[in-house]
Design a binder for these strands. Structure first.
Length: 110
DNA sequence: ACCATGACGTTTC
DNA sequence: CGAAACGCCATGG
C-alpha cells in the first residue's frame, strides 16, 4: 500500500468513464485529479492497468497531440489502433484524426 | 541516498 | 517538423 494507490485507482475510474469512440490524454486525467504535473504517472498507471481485475480502456488514452505513443505496450504492432478504429476513431500514421472533435475532457464533461 | 528510466508536456532550436 | 533540454515524479536497481 502506498499513497499513490488512490491516485492510480482514480485514474482507472476515469479511464472507464471515457465514452465509446472518444479519447482523452494523460495530462487531462492528471489535471482533473489535481496532479497536473503527474501525467507520466498516468502513463505508468496504464502500464499497470492490465493487472487490474476490472478492464481499463487504455487505448482511449493518448498524449496531448492525439498520437498513439503507447501503442508498443499493446500486443502486436497495431492493436491499439485497431481497437480505436473498431470504435470509429480514425488513425493515420499513429495520429488520431479529428482529435479535437472526439477529445473527451473530464474537467468539462464530468 | 544516487542514478536511470519512462504510455508526459512545454519550450526552444 | 524532428530532436533535445528541462521539469516533473513514482519505481527499481
Amino acid at each position: 500500500m502506498s499513497t499513490s494507490d488512490n491516485f492510480f485507482h482514480k485514474v482507472y475510474e476515469i479511464a472507464r468513464l471515457i465514452p465509446f469512440g472518444r479519447v482523452t490524454s494523460y495530462g487531462a486525467i492528471a489535471s482533473y485529479l489535481g496532479a497536473a504535473k503527474s501525467a507520466r504517472m498516468v502513463g505508468w498507471a496504464m502500464t499497470k492497468s492490465r493487472t487490474q481485475t476490472e478492464e481499463v480502456p487504455a487505448h482511449r488514452v493518448v498524449n496531448r497531440n492525439g498520437i498513439l505513443t503507447g501503442k508498443h505496450h499493446f500486443e502486436g504492432s497495431d492493436l491499439m489502433q485497431q481497437l480505436l478504429e473498431n470504435e470509429g476513431v480514425k488513425v493515420v500514421d499513429d495520429q488520431i484524426q479529428n482529435f479535437e472533435k472526439i477529445f473527451w475532457n473530464p474537467a468539462e464533461e464530468l
